[in-house]
Amino acid sequence: MARLTLNALGKTFGTTTAVAAFSLDVKDGELVCLLGPSGSGKSTLLRMVGGFETPTSGEVLIDGEVVTRTPPERRPTAMVFQSHALWTHMNVFGNIAFGLRIRRLPKAEIASRVGRVLALVGLEGYGKRQTNQLSGGQQQRVAIARALVLEPKILLLDEPFASLDQHLRERLREEVRDIQHRLGITTLFVTHGQDEALSLADRIVVLKEGRAEQVGAPAEVYRSPATPFVAGFIGSMNRLPGSVEAGRFRHGALELPLEGVPDGPAELAVRPEHLVVRAAPGGGAASLRRLTDYGTHRIIDLETSEGARLKAQVADGADLPQGPGLQLEPTAWAVFRNDQVIARSPA
């Protein structure tokens, strides 16, 4: 039960800036995902909250108390590392009990708390196992249990499922979400996987080169990306170069009416599921290249008369004619200029 505040937090390594004046307020019980490509500063940010990196500027507050210079052992945070970082010379019980033993809790209480947290992550009776006798997923569960047993105010997860296979990742993701909900623990989750962020987060922070590109709920970040970077990084996105002339966006035969936008070059961003494709008897803006059936949905690859490639999600697709003769109708879109949104489809 805690609130986390990052106040103009910055970190430079030599001449490179890893994080630049980053501010964020994480509410009590909220799960915030830091999403970005490698080198975007998301791990550095998390490590500053955990106390493993000293910020070069700004401050970290937990429940209003400044902890910027507090060493990790005296912070009410607990971290789950990407490599799980279990201590291989201790068994599962020893790993989880370590922090409680340091706090000099009575033996009986340590045993009961370790038992409870093992049950929470679905590993009852695994206490006596050695860590190398566990599968990758079980090891990561132990790492989560080791963090949770300390009852931290803030839980920090640094790409905890990156080394696991797809199936296991999805299952553990749900479990973590369940546990986080049940305990109501304030959580900061670092990932480079957009699906992970979309499915887990209350709010997503999209990071690029140490700056927040956009902060918002998953639906907001997905539907109304604030910058071309966010648009391209989350989900699949078609980007069409073109220009605005006399209140219309043009890319070849594709035209969109825009209101109150000055003329000049622009880029149209539209998701495959927001692009309706119809046969146009008189010849259209694009031609069909290929159809791929993914089981749950079908994707067609298109090429516009200008040579740009697009993807569109279709219900059937078999009825579409080969060759140039397709008409494109974006139902939800955004137009960017100089990394700024200049127009958006009416909601």
Partner: peptide, 9 residues
């Protein structure tokens, strides 16, 4: 680091 995190000096 995990040990520091768990409260060890």
């Amino acid at each position: 680091e995990a040990a520091r995190d768990a409260g060890a000096g």
